[in-house]
Design a binder for these strands. Sequence first.
DNA 1: TGATTCGTGATCCTATAGGATGTTTCATGG
DNA 2: CCATGAAACATCCTATAGGATCACGAATCA
Lengths: 222, 222
Amino acid sequence: MARPEPIRFRRSTLGEDVYETLKGLVLEHTLSPGDRINIDALAREFAVSPTPIREALARLESDGLVRKRPLVGYTVSPLLTRAEFTDMFEMRLLLECAATRWAAERTDAARRSAITTEAATTVVPEEDDPDGWHGAFTVLDARFHDLIAEASGNDLLRDGINRLHAHLHLHRRYFPYAQAGATVEEHRRIAAAIQAADPDGAEAAMREHLTRARERHLPAFD
Amino acid sequence: MARPEPIRFRRSTLGEDVYETLKGLVLEHTLSPGDRINIDALAREFAVSPTPIREALARLESDGLVRKRPLVGYTVSPLLTRAEFTDMFEMRLLLECAATRWAAERTDAARRSAITTEAATTVVPEEDDPDGWHGAFTVLDARFHDLIAEASGNDLLRDGINRLHAHLHLHRRYFPYAQAGATVEEHRRIAAAIQAADPDGAEAAMREHLTRARERHLPAFD
DNA sequence: TGATTCGTGATCCTATAGGATGTTTCATGG
DNA sequence: CCATGAAACATCCTATAGGATCACGAATCA
């Protein structure tokens, strides 16, 4: 009868686990944008001391997922304004178009195949589980874009792209089902151009994909 | 006889101050790349508890300035390899060329003047204080590039650029004096094109500046 | 000589108490 | 009835001590 329940499955350090878990909670909207974060409450919830919580929050603030007001507390970052959202897509166009071009130019055959395979994967819409569908679709989308970022061969570029995607995820809940098919089709075109080692075509396909993605998202701000 | 010395001039929170101070120590090479960081020793040094130290280190790790090995401790990030360095300049070309173009297109008259003024400022080389000169020159360079990043009107872009500059600062110690004049001249050309609202010219000037800057730095890797 | 085992040391994590600050509520005056 | 002010409250931030875990080095054995 030593310790009945704390199943502590620590991958490396407690702070790391807390960081990943908290990031998940924010991205899943279990912690909604604007919510206040009580450190002591979280510590009790996770059955850890406030120290690793505080450490995880400091990193999340660097990611822009939470905000800290001194002597007041942490809050989940609010959703992007329309202006910030267009700024983000301006950045995505800059970063991801370049990454796609370099992926088409430089990467090896194995990665090209992986990208093509990923683009061929689809997720079936389930009307009765909208949240699950949104989650699955987002994971798929994120993995596709990360594969390209990795294939660019520039790790700093990859980090920058993933940093933007974290913000994008906060908005996935407002992405319409109906247009998922178009997204998959655009992914296929990008993958095909990369597979064919066609930098111009790949960059153009990514530019069109992102431009259309922006159009698909923008109505949510009205 | 309450508290004799801790002159605590806290801007907001202790963790914030510790973060800025530590960042300075790393950038100044007071903590050299590869050095191990002892949390308890730092806490004694700053006369604070380990908690804010730990919080600051978590943020610095997000910035890429320190690395954490679980259950071993923190170390100052090593200098960039040649490959990472070229990757960084690839990123700078991407981000800063776009920022310069948009600054020339969009920004207001006040910011244009500020950029021109900053480009006209120079720092005199002092042979007997190489470290002070390097520091002053770096501050000047960083401010010029940040003014342009801010004038781009895209805060995410600005953050991305500043994140890269932190890494660049770690290498400033190996930047040769003799070529500072060329840098200033290139800055002036960029500023002039922005002042003239000439996007193409401004972007081209920035591209040439960064390309040459890369050439100036590369010999340090031999 | 190489691999394995053991001991030491450092680090990380936990827990709790106290001080400082922002927020909220309530009472009072206009 | 509304606005202003002060006081009580809750929360966060900081500080300190102690226990558990793991990495590293030395000694031993095959």
